[in-house]
Nucleic acid binder design. Structure first.
Lengths: 144, 144
DNA sequence: CTACAAAATTTGTATATACAAATATATAAA
DNA sequence: TTTATATATTTGTATATACAAATTTTGTAG
């Protein structure tokens, strides 16, 4: 029945998501960061020197979180990012990645690439594209 | 480049997983349970009266967790399940769903079905099947 | 200029989760 | 029978996350 297929689809997305989440988390753990923390660092690297403020980071995060402030706090403690108050708008903060943060990402990049390739190794190129196409339909479904 | 597509695929699976996770969580929250708790209740209902022990439940969970004991504790506190020590093997415990738990599931079923349908409403039947097929390839990829 | 609402971030607090170590029981070997 | 090993679950503890309320600063209407 259709209803069963819907349920199976939902469960298979969830399971695969959890699996990938767990595997990447265990990789990042070796570098003493969490997956969301890594995600933030990568967003900041993408800024190419320009700072980002909290709300920008939140928007771009793979998993939107309720508490990005404390996540940044931890990255600051580890020396991977810096935080300043924005001159123009003192409500905002400006967040930068440090050299140490860039070095960390650099040391993770290759490992991550091979991990990701491994996870998807059974998929042909077409299947990856198909996956992206179908999943993006779900992403763009607005829920009330 | 291929590497970029791999990354995009991984991110799109993660994002979709988080999205579905969050939406279902917010539905279950109305009933004062979490998604993993719901999952356990549904596993127990599937036992059709027979008890399940902790390790069985853990194996079947959508998201394997490190701490199923306390998850069950919470369900017991709410009166949705019961726990006994197994007669044959006193290391094991036997977990049952109560009538109250069954009623809860019953009251959730319809809402959940329509939520799931809504989430996947943009997908044709073939696309759902294709999704399941491709994702199962990832599921069966053993990571060292 | 003052009061009020909006925006951006932070903080308090309760709950959830991960991980490792501890406990309890059963099985097997000597 | 004693000791060791494996199995099943529980507990301690540190960390992570969710959610709501509080704080700080800005913009705007009167």
């Amino acid at each position: 029945m259709e209803e069963q297929i819907i349920r199976d689809t939902v469960i298979s997305i969830l399971k695969t998501g959890y699996k990938i989440n767990d595997e990447l988390s265990s990789l990042f753990k070796k570098f003493d960061i969490s997956l969301p923390q890594f995600n933030v660092l990568r967003i900041l690297r993408g800024q190419k020197g320009k700072p980002a403020n909290l709300s920008t980071i939140q928007e771009r995060m793979v998993h939107k979180m309720s508490n990005t402030t404390r996540l940044i706090d931890k990255l600051i403690l580890k020396g991977f990012v810096k935080r300043n108050i924005c001159e123009n708008n003192r409500r905002k903060i400006e967040i930068y990645i440090t050299n140490s943060g860039l070095q960390l990402l650099d040391s993770i990049d290759d490992l991550l690439n091979s991990k990701e390739s491994f996870i998807l190794k059974k998929l042909k190129l077409d299947e990856k594209k198909e996956l992206i196409r179908i999943l993006s339909k779900i992403q763009t479904t607005q829920v009330n």
